[in-house]
Computed example of a mutant assay.
Amino acid sequence: MKKAYHLVLIMMLCGMLALTGCGKGGAGDSGEASGTAASGTGSDSGTGLKPYKITLVYPASAPKDLQLVQDEMSKYLTEKINATIELRPIEWASWDDKTNLMKISNEPFDLLFTASWFSYAKDVAKGQFVELDELMAQYGKDIPGILGDDFIKGSKIGGKLYALPTKKEFGQGFGFLLDKKLVEKYKFDITGVKSLEDMEAMFKTIKDNEPAVTPIVSSKFTNTWSAANYDGIVANLAVPRGSKELKAIDTLEDPKFIDFFQRMHQWYQNGWFDKDILTSDADQGMNMIKAGKAFAVAQSLKPGKDKEMSVTTGVDLVQVETAEP
């Protein structure tokens, strides 16, 4: 229960991530602009705090039991801090358009998903987020001990904290999620898969024997590969992952980069990619697998990613890593 209470503190501090344009005045004013009284909670619910509704905006498809989860979270939050929560998932395909509109229209909300690879630095540079250092010192003294110094330091920009990270796996792998039914049908041995080359025999088998199934879906594949091999700075300037020296290179001149795109050109000629490869995304890839029309989709991976996505999509999946964390 103590750990759960700390998670509530984290959520409330994350609430300070509300865009500065969403309310006028200080943090308290912004809170009142975006929060609403929780129905049926009374004046303080025994906590000494006024009722408040937390609005959480995050990228995901809305599950069937969203309301059930939201209600249970609200019960817990009401008990602890007299707050309820509104979960507002937004499909990845619409995320940029909808969240940008929310920002420029000053639509009130409290919690917003962000990441180092997804607009965090850009939004900080625009002054979109509130600095959390003073709030941490006042209300979240126990949080650094829970998250650890590395997590906290990694979230700072210019020495200042604007977001609290999720405490989860520290490393991230890259590879594919595969339709388990087809893996078992053709008795693919995925235990030894370590590289893109190791995937090619499977893709060829699917192409030759399953005319209605696309071997690979999603334009994010090249992004996933690039993230696995380079720490990008700007445009094609990056530091190769695993490099022992902090030296930026032009990826367009890197033999590894050139070899990859030559391989992708060959895969395209083999007919392994979906016809919408330039615009399709991971959600579309998962929907095609669910419909029995695709075999693999590129993904950033973690332990248990296949189990998580199997539950989410209702399709049995297995994962293979082609790049180590």
Rank of each mutant, 00 (worst) to 15 (best):
S45K: 09
S310P: 06
Q299E: 14
Q67G: 02
S74Y: 09
T84E: 15
F188G: 07
Q70V: 07
N223P: 03
K290H: 14
I233R: 09
A296M: 08
S219A: 15
S116I: 10
K141E: 14
V213N: 03
D316E: 15
I157L: 05
S34Y: 13
T205M: 05
E72I: 14
S155Q: 04
G314D: 11
V318C: 10
G159R: 00
T78P: 05
W272C: 01
R241K: 15
W272R: 03
Y139A: 12
A60L: 00
K2L: 14
Q128I: 12
M286W: 15
D96K: 10
E131I: 03
F151K: 14
T47D: 05
P325V: 02
Y52D: 12
D150Y: 12
A18D: 02
Y139M: 08
M73Q: 13
E308H: 13
L112W: 14
Y120K: 11
E210L: 03
T222P: 00
G140F: 11
Y58V: 00
G242H: 03
G145I: 06
G148F: 10
A282E: 15
D276R: 03
K247Q: 11
A115K: 07
G127R: 04
K207G: 02
K156F: 05
M286K: 15
M288K: 15
M16H: 13
G35Q: 12
W95S: 03
Y120G: 02
T36L: 08
V320T: 12
I143T: 09
D259F: 00
S243Q: 00
G26E: 06
E324L: 12
K2F: 13
W92I: 03
D71W: 00
M264S: 09
V234Q: 09
F188C: 02
K160W: 01
L7G: 14
G140W: 09
K167V: 06
G242C: 04
P303L: 07
M286I: 10
T55R: 15
T84W: 07
E107W: 05
D316C: 04
A125L: 04
F188R: 02
S219K: 09
T36K: 14
P303D: 13
V69D: 06
N82T: 09
L66R: 09
V69F: 10
E184T: 11
I258S: 05
P240D: 04
P144R: 06
K247A: 08
N229P: 02
A298M: 12
A235Q: 06
K160G: 03
S226E: 15
L13Y: 03
S195Q: 05
I81Y: 14
I10W: 10
L111P: 01
T99D: 01
V124Q: 06
K153D: 15
K204D: 05
C14M: 13
V183C: 10
S195C: 07
D274F: 00
T279F: 08
P240F: 01
K80V: 13
K64I: 10
I90C: 07
V8R: 03
K24A: 08
T205C: 10
K167D: 04
E200M: 12
K75G: 00
E131A: 10
G158I: 07
